[in-house]
Design a protein around this nucleic acid. Structure first.
Length: 595
RNA sequence: GCGCCCUUAGCUCAGUCGGAUAGAGCAACAGCCUUCUAAGCUGUGGGUCGGUGGUUCGAAUCCACCAGGGCGCGCCA
């Protein structure tokens, strides 16, 4: 039986509805929902069943609602059913129906909220995929956290999830990186060239000037002495060093990326290399497949609508028929020198993911790749014959703020805030939680002061404080009742009849909505909803806690009334378990006490 | 100019595949510490959901147009 009391009631409602309207089409039945009421005055839950089925049943909504009220009133768990508004049926449950959820929550522990929704279907979530050309910075951080939490969320919702990172280690960018490392190497061996003189000889100019390439250059010096340098410590012919330096630098950068990600608590299982896809012929095979399907042609694109660049001229290119799959224009696959565009390799990469057996692909991208969404989706349709789907989660820009002012400079990298700086300043938990307190497709301000503040403004603190309070209560109870076992398994067996206060019910209703929150967030690919759920749950708990301030009889621990105390401890332990369940999705540590 | 994203209280933001009187924090004002942690809680005031039309029994939510902000716009990855 489902953990989800709303899902169970939905089945009950559907049974009753089918009695009233035997020929109800399935697509109408699918629209029936049972949701928590926004206003407690309307009861515990409400259903739209009468409204959505009225047309198909050829009956007035009010009439169906009346029939549902009559049928549902007979159910033992329903204390009151009433028609309301244009045809809603409001249900007030016997409080025991909510109390009865607690044992299941206690026994499930962190697994509470796990859902069979995904039925074990495989999903590939690709995120971060920062180019290995430098330290991870703040621009990568949001995508890393959102992707990781989304992957955790989908796993909780019953999908078989693979977390993946795509290494863009092919193309001009990594060649430029090699030239930059080589400059640091020449400096290390004592070149007489100035940086400007060197830059003038680099194809495309010297693109990466950060200090972070000095350590790999030092390592090259240690391994190879000055053998990679040219006569007079100038530039040697590229055949003598470029491949070596490039591969060496990529390895060094990727080690750093993995280290940074590990600090953030992100550990992808699969790292796919663009170079490997090229080297093993995957790219050629995929392109050949598209060619065989007639999806590639030589053609000339129209200039961009409305804006013709000054240097625009008609040019014949190798194009992919993206427009056949919903894109606005066809997209180029080859550069004029005959090499593949990034898009061509990316098609192959996604085709590879499909071949590896993923019917659902999710990419988490930065907002600057927004213009890429429709072409990639069209490519996935093309290479999978429409059998695989690609969802793309775009993460908008994060502005780091301190004291109300934007923060731009980094002590290390000079031009951007590195991930490491951010982690050192506010810590992993605050970074992860805060990054999930906004919808990913909205821009966000990350307030450094707020992220470390120990007040209600700071959701990280507020939620962790609620968990710490739960644990504190359970520790105190162990002292007050040394003879009583207080394990979840024990608490799952105690009588809960004394949990009758409105604040108890508010909290239990919140706990009851956790499974549906997980499913809805997973379907919408919106991990931020978990953060908001936890914040609301924490507020409910803090409220309950504070009732004990006004009335000592409402405190959790009553030494002279063990039965009531155990019931309350069960509620507290269930709350703690649910918080841990949610924090696990977010990758945030539940703390035992605040210090 | 074209495409995508965003616009909700003074500020920062939620709003469950369209649902009932649009919610929270901060800020403002008024209360609560001999206590299982006051790092918290309670209450008050504050919104034409950017604008105008449309679809619907019902729109912050869907559609069209307009305004403002962001991102992007043929051989960069």
């Amino acid at each position: 039986m489902s953990q989800d009391i709303y899902a169970r009631m939905r089945e009950t409602v559907l049974d009753a509805l089918r009695t009233l309207a035997p020929d109800l089409p399935d697509d109408i039945a699918a629209r029936v929902e049972v949701t928590p009421t926004r206003d407690p005055a309307h009861g515990d839950m409400a259903t739209n069943a009468a409204l959505v089925s009225a047309k198909a049943a050829r009956q007035a909504p009010a009439k169906i609602a009346a029939g549902l009220v009559a049928a549902l009133s007979l159910r033992p768990e329903v204390a009151e059913a009433a028609a309301a508004g244009p045809g809603f049926v409001n249900l007030r449950l016997d409080p025991a129906a909510f109390r009865d959820l607690l044992p299941g929550i206690l026994l499930a522990g962190e697994q509470y909220g796990d859902s069979p929704l995904g039925r074990g279907a495989r999903v590939n979530v690709e995120y971060v995929s920062a180019n290995p050309t430098g330290p991870m910075h703040i621009g990568h951080c949001r995508g890393a956290v959102v992707g990781d939490a989304l992957a955790n969320l989908l796993a909780k919702a019953g999908f078989d999830v693979t977390k993946e990172y795509y290494i863009n280690d092919a193309g001009n960018q990594v060649a430029a990186l090699a030239w930059a490392t080589y400059w640091r190497y020449l400096q290390a061996v004592g070149t007489s060239l100035t940086e400007d003189e060197y830059a003038a000889q680099v194809p495309g100019g010297l693109q990466y000037r950060g200090d972070y390439l000095i350590p790999p250059a030092q390592e090259l010096l240690r391994l190879h002495g000055d053998s990679l340098a040219g006569p007079g410590k100038g530039i040697a012919p590229v055949e003598q060093w470029l491949d070596l330096v490039r591969d060496f630098t990529i390895d060094a950068m990727m080690r750093q990326v993995r280290d940074d990600l590990a600090l953030l608590g992100v550990n992808q299982a699969v790292f796919s290399s663009e170079r490997a896809l090229v080297a093993t012929g995957v790219v050629d095979r995929v392109i050949a497949g598209l060619e065989a399907d007639g999806l590639i042609y030589q053609g000339v694109l129209e200039p961009p609508k409305g804006k013709t660049p000054d240097d625009w001229e008609p040019r014949e290119q190798t194009l992919f028929r993206a427009t056949q799959f919903g894109d606005d224009v066809d997209r180029p696959l080859r550069k004029s020198d005959g090499s593949n565009t990034y898009f061509a390799n990316d098609i192959a990469y996604h085709a590879d993911k499909v071949l590896r057996g993923f019917p659902t692909l999710i990419d988490v991208w930065g907002a600057d790749h927004g213009g890429y969404v429709s072409r990639m989706k069209s490519a996935v349709k093309a290479v999978s014959g429409g059998k695989a789907t690609l969802d793309i989660v775009l993460c908008q820009i994060v502005h780091i703020m301190r004291g109300g002012e934007p923060v731009r400079m980094s002590k290390r990298a000079g031009t951007f805030v590195t991930l490491r700086d951010l982690l050192e300043e506010v810590g992993r938990d605050a970074v992860r939680f805060t990054m999930l307190t906004r919808k990913s497709d909205a821009q966000m301000e990350f307030d450094l002061d707020q992220a470390v503040a120990q007040t209600r403004e700071n959701p990280v603190f507020y939620v962790q404080y609620a968990h710490a309070r739960c644990r504190s209560v359970l520790r105190s109870a162990a002292n007050s009742f040394p003879a009583q076992a207080l394990t979840p398994a024990e608490l799952a067996t105690v009588s809960l009849d004394s949990l009758t206060a409105e604040a108890d019910l508010v909290l239990m209703r919140r706990l009851a909505s956790w499974p549906r929150t997980v499913e809805a967030a997973a379907i919408a690919r919106e991990p931020h909803r978990i953060a908001f759920f936890l914040y609301d749950l924490a507020a409910d708990f803090h409220m309950l806690w504070n009732r004990g301030r006004d009335d000592a009889e409402l405190r959790f621990i009553q030494a002279d009334r063990p039965a009531e105390t155990l019931a309350r401890l069960a509620l507290v332990a269930a709350t703690a378990a649910t918080i841990r369940s949610g924090l696990a999705v977010m990758g945030v540590t539940p703390v035992e006490e605040m210090r």
